Amino acid sequence: MPDLTHPLVIAAIILAVLCVVGVVWWAIARRSHPHGVEDAQTTPEPPSVIPDAVAEDEVHAVDQPLQDIIESPSVEEPPVEIPEAPMTRMQRLRGRLARSGSLGKAVLAVLSRGNLSEADWEEIEDTLLSADVGLAATDEIMERLRTEVKVRGDVSPVEAQQILKQELLAAVGTDMDRSLHLDKAEGPAAILVVGVNGTGKTTTVGKLARVLRAQDKTVLLGAADTFRAAATEQLATWGQRVGVDVVSSEREGGDPASVAFDAVKEAKERGIDVVLVDTAGRLQTKATLMDELGKVKRVMEKQGPVDEVLLVLDATTGQNGMRQAEVFGQVVGLTGIVLTKLDGSAKGGIVISVQKELGVPVKFVGLGEGPDDLAPFDPESFVDAIVG
Rank of each mutant, 00 (worst) to 15 (best):
M1G: 13
P2V: 15
L8E: 15
A11I: 12
A12E: 09
C19P: 04
H33S: 13
P34Y: 09
V37P: 06
P46Q: 13
P51I: 12
A53P: 01
V54N: 01
E58G: 00
I69T: 04
V80L: 11
I82A: 14
A85V: 13
L93P: 08
R99Y: 04
S102W: 07
S102E: 15
L103R: 10
L103S: 08
K105V: 11
K105P: 08
K105N: 09
A109L: 15
S112D: 14
N115D: 15
S117K: 14
E118T: 13
L128I: 11
D132H: 05
E140Q: 15
I141N: 11
V151S: 14
S156Y: 10
V158C: 06
K165C: 08
R178Y: 08
D183C: 06
A185W: 06
G187M: 10
P188L: 03
A190R: 14
V194E: 06
G198V: 10
T199M: 08
T204I: 08
V205M: 02
A209Y: 03
R213P: 02
K217F: 10
F227K: 03
A229E: 08
A229C: 03
Q234H: 08
T237Y: 06
T237S: 11
D255F: 03
D255C: 07
P256C: 05
V264T: 11
I272C: 01
L276Y: 01
V277M: 06
A287C: 04
E292V: 11
E292S: 07
K297F: 01
R298G: 07
M300V: 06
V306L: 01
D314N: 00
T316P: 00
T317D: 00
G321T: 05
A325Y: 00
G329P: 05
V331R: 00
V331Q: 05
V332M: 02
G336D: 09
S345I: 00
I350V: 07
V360G: 02
V362H: 01
L367H: 09
A375F: 04
A375L: 01
V383K: 08
I386Q: 10
